[in-house]
Design a protein around this nucleic acid. Structure first.
Lengths: 334, 334
DNA sequence: GGACCTTGTGCAACCGATTGCACTAATTGC
DNA sequence: GCAATTAGTGCAATCGGTTGCACAAGGTCC
């Protein structure tokens, strides 16, 4: 059916092994022979069978992505798509393929990862879950299968990972607000047990300290989900206590919910800052100032780390910090 | 290194071929032997090497997705993610893997498709592009490689495809508006050369006819992109002529742009309907009535068709029409 | 009790590449 | 001019499974 290396060998009047060496550009083959073989390959539209190569090489050049299904992507968070694109673009450039799978929960995730590993389908794995657990991480560490984590791991020194500097990102947000004259700044975060929430909260506190602004627990709320509803409720609680001058949040949806309360109550002049810079922020009226976490780069660097790991197996455990950018819009230009 | 079929054979005291037959659950193997082999497999945590199987079976059970990079997903359109999830969930259930690749343009797309086909990497391909061309489609038809198109093809009878009934969807929107008392309904569509635009426009016209409302070219505009800006401009042009009672659009972003103009000019009471029901619609203030195209199902059916095609190779060319749902929100409850 | 099935298993070729080693022909050295 | 070296290529084993065919053991039939 398909064209094989033998067809090329026959046409070019050499042996299959020679063709193979031409494919991998071995220096042991003369220029003359190479050209003969290239010609034959072109003539028959030949491309090596990837599967056969994989078997012989014991490497598939496939990277497997493990995507969560629930919670986080309540609303098809664009973050994933952006990161997936970043991964794909880099991987394609390096001649790697990307495979993805959604998993409903940690159990299924682990199951799939085990399958990936045992069946030798993928050379490396990229995890999108920054769960606290994490059975998947410990399994992968145990079996010594290459993987990269998007998000900060519990133990940052024996894992490859990429993340933003969430502390600094939020620090900068608050710093920015203070410099604009806001002093009384509320905080609405996501689930308290997530690193990303903790880090952003710490950044918030540190910035207040730096500017000698005293903290006030009563304007700090942690929502259970990244939803508009959760933001709405958190804001209500804060307002029951006082009207702050500004609100920082750890997600655009939380910010939208909070804004909604303010609109309902006809409260004007409260600055609002979102996080993640989803396009919700841009298309809101008034448009929402938000922190761009550069998901595309997160993906790109994840792929980069993983591929480097695959190519030099004793690569040290390291990580990338991807810069964030505060995108100012109308919600802080009141 | 890894556990192979031979290890299992040795442990279970049978030949590798017997183990292989147990794996594929051949009826020729006695229950007794099967259990012996299962036990050995469990004991060693064995899973067959997918690559070796693929080579022997001449089938990888991998489906390849070809994703566009530019235009359409200006803003990381959630449509893709939803469809990808639909595909993945169905495929996983059937034991297939998903691979994806982004391509900047048609050339690159074709290149990648050729690579997929010639290297025998994927068993089937899912195309997300409903371009008018289409070199990719004709190539795939020519070489006879299984594929499914998301979107209506030029020739609907020699291709597998899934799509919404865009004609009816828009017909229903207009019908809905008319029944609510709106008569003077403007239309803002996307690029005129896309089938999806044409079909929706035809639905619009037909509904007007049905209700004996005369058409007015001057309230019909086709934007060049699916962007807020394009919607904004189209709406401006329409308003230069008259203020309609309602506006239907073929994309949420166009609707947002149109709404923006109305807000700017302080025009109240114009009903607005979006399309695709991205979460922009839900989180808008006022929230936007929109047509849910059920991208998840589109993906699911695409996977279903493709996998059926792979399993019975003489499957007739057919297609699925996925239902749309008009989701009413505040923008039509004025 | 021997011919004939049936059932269950093993042998060996094969899928399409890669690669260590052997071998041939050309080149170099003396 | 011949041995030694080198460059270029081919042979055959291998990666880890699958499968057509042969065959052994046990059962059935007359």
């Amino acid at each position: 059916m398909g064209i094989t290396i033998k067809d090329i060998a026959k046409l070019a009047n050499v042996s299959p092994s020679t063709v193979s060496r031409v494919i991998s550009n071995s220096p042991k083959i003369s220029q003359e022979t190479k050209e003969k073989v290239y010609k034959a390959m072109k003539e028959l539209n030949y491309e090596p069978n990837v599967i056969a190569r994989s078997l012989a090489n014991n490497s598939t050049r496939i990277l497997g992505l493990i995507l969560p299904t629930s919670e986080d992507d309540l609303f098809e968070n664009p973050f994933f798509m952006q990161a997936m694109k970043g991964i794909s673009v880099y991987a394609q450039k390096k001649g790697y393929y990307i495979m993805y799978a959604f998993s409903e929960n940690e159990e299924k995730e682990l199951e799939f990862i085990k399958h990936y590993v045992r069946s030798k389908l993928v050379d490396g794995i990229i995890l999108f879950t920054s769960r606290q657990n994490d059975k998947c991480i410990s399994y992968l560490k145990n079996v010594g299968h290459p993987f990269v984590l998007i998000g900060r791991p519990e133990q940052p020194n024996d894992v490859l990972w990429v993340d933003n500097d969430n502390f600094r990102a939020m620090y900068n947000v608050v710093d920015f607000l203070v410099k604009k004259g806001y002093k009384d700044i509320a905080f609405i975060g996501g689930p308290e047990n997530l690193y990303v929430t903790r880090d952003r909260f710490d950044g918030y506190r540190k910035a207040l300290q730096t500017h000698a602004i005293s903290e006030d627990d009563k304007v700090v709320k942690f929502a259970k989900h990244f939803s508009k509803q959760a933001g709405y409720e958190a804001m209500k609680e804060i307002l029951a206590y006082k009207i702050p001058q500004a609100v920082v949040t750890t997600d655009d949806l939380l910010a939208l919910g909070a804004t909604h309360v303010l609109n309902e109550l006809g409260i004007k002049g409260v600055a609002m800052v979102g996080f993640n810079n989803t396009y919700l922020a841009e298309y809101q009226v008034p448009s929402l100032t938000s922190v761009d976490i550069n998901a595309h780069k997160l993906g790109e660097y994840a792929a980069k780390l993983l591929i480097e790991k695959l190519q030099k197996k004793d690569m040290p455990y390291t990580h990338y910090i991807v810069d964030t950018v505060l995108v100012e819009r109308e919600s802080t230009r009141l």
